[in-house]
Design a protein around this nucleic acid. Structure first.
Lengths: 157, 157
DNA sequence: TATATCATTTACGTAAACGTAAAAGTGCGG
DNA sequence: CCGCACTTTTACGTTTACGTAAATGATATA
């Protein structure tokens, strides 16, 4: 018993910050089902991420074993997706991670991509606000039209 | 002079309002290329909309001729898409249009769908704002990390 | 051993709105 | 008659992030 068995109960909180991996290994190997539950994703998702080269769990025979590093990586992936990065982007950034260096290049790339993504998000927000406004206008108009109809003819069901 | 001939120069401005079709026919038949240019869509798009039952241009032999009604419909389609309706939704609403009635049902459906869509849009906006915030935070952190690295080691290119 | 649960791989399906050839017909100016 | 611009139809391709079988293997428990 070098470590506590890790009862599998800590949530995938957004405590950690993006692009920040801790490195180092512990024990708490998780199997795919536990991993999925822990992070609220499906098994399919985990296999898919692996297939795309975003995760590299160990293997016990054919069974996947997820380590502490994998958890960190998955956390990053999910955060990345939350802010709108594609998996390709996430991978590109993660692939630059080097536990032995300062990761300056990785950070620069991340920052660069982030700036662009931020711009995209802001544009999206504007578009949506536009849509909200136009839709609201239309709704007001439709309500008026309906009001006319109900005063003129009958008071339908 | 009941109406001005409408010289075919009016842009696809957002002047008209959603769900409001004028009906009635004029002259200015447009061919697909002109129609496309006028509304800033591709030929493929127009054919696609037709294929989906959203447009029903006349035909001169095999050549499509778009009338005033088609223009109105296209305007609605584009507005619908702008506010985030699917083409299926748009079609469903348009299919209820009856030039001879009060269109109460159409308006009710439109209003109903609009309310739901408005809710979706607002949710989306919130999600995006969230993303913007988290991304901004990460960026700040990364900038700090980069700053440390540049003060400690070299002043890279 | 039988059953149940979890796991594996392979691979096609999904959604939306078109893009993009491919191959051919139509009409007009020169 | 030529060539060019415009149009037609058909039909597969694109994108992203998985969903959803299907068939089989491994482990654990009763």
């Amino acid at each position: 018993m070098t470590m506590k068995p890790m009862k599998a109960g800590d949530n995938a909180g957004a405590t950690d910050n993006m692009f920040v991996d801790s490195g180092e290994a512990g024990d708490g190997f998780l199997r795919i089902g536990e991993m999925a539950k822990k992070f609220g994703v499906t098994l399919r998702t985990l296999r898919f991420y692996e297939d795309k080269g975003l995760l590299h769990p160990h293997r016990d025979g054919s069974t996947r074993l997820y380590t502490r590093r994998d958890k960190a990586r998955l956390k990053l992936i999910l955060l990345g997706r939350k802010v709108g990065f594609s998996l390709r982007d996430v991978k590109q950034m993660m692939d630059l991670y080097d536990p032995s260096g300062t990761n300056t290049k990785q950070l620069r790339l991340a920052l660069d991509k982030s700036e662009k993504q931020l711009a995209r998000l802001q544009k999206q927000r504007d578009v949506i606000e536009d849509a909200i406004n136009e839709l609201s206008n239309s709704m007001t108009l439709v309500r008026k039209m309906l009001a006319e109809r109900s005063t003129q003819t009958n008071s339908a069901a």
